[in-house]
């Protein structure tokens, strides 16, 4: 009973690394269009999705974030021509390692959201929040041995 109550009250803390040139603008657009958005996302602006290296993601994850969202321009639309292609490879690599080690790979997501896709931004954040809610809190937060 107690557990269930705790789970109901759980509100995830998600860290979002948003590309300055597209997703960050999409977030702005969502705001100025007064769309409703789950307040779970803590936004960190980066200059490109390829700025997000594995250390950033891992320190965020081991620092206790319940979910991590990386968002950047659609392939082919990178402000720096090819940054998001590198980001995509790095993401695939990181995800594969988390899968091999069975370290909750579902808590990590990469999404392409362009500057005009305010609606998509809202959908992605809300859906991701729902998914993390189902997964429950990051186990690292309760682990005194890490």
């Amino acid at each position: 009973m107690e557990d269930q109550k705790q789970k109901e009250e759980f509100f995830p803390k998600i860290v979002g690394y948003l590309c300055n040139w597209c997703t960050y603008a999409a977030a702005d657009l969502a705001g100025s269009s007064k769309m409703e958005l789950s307040p779970s996302l803590n936004v960190i602006r980066v200059m490109c999705s390829s700025r997000v290296d594995y250390n950033l993601v891992l320190t965020t994850f081991f620092g206790g974030a319940d979910g991590i969202l990386i968002a950047g321009c659609h392939p082919g639309d990178c402000h720096y021509d090819k940054g998001n292609y590198y980001a995509r490879r790095r993401y695939a690599l990181l995800k594969s390692i988390l899968e091999t080690l069975k370290l909750d790979p579902e808590r990590l997501q990469l999404s392409w959201i362009s500057a005009s896709e305010g609606k998509r931004y809202v959908d992605v954040v809300n859906e991701f929040t729902e998914r993390i809610k189902k997964l429950g809190p990051n186990p690292i937060n309760r682990n005194a041995y890490y």
Partner: peptide, 21 residues
């Protein structure tokens, strides 16, 4: 936050980081 901390810190993180690298 966690009720306890391991020291030295980040030993698991170090290995996963190296795996990525």
């Amino acid at each position: 936050r966690k009720g306890g901390v391991r020291l030295p810190t980040d030993t698991v993180l170090y290995h996963i980081g190296r795996l990525n690298h």
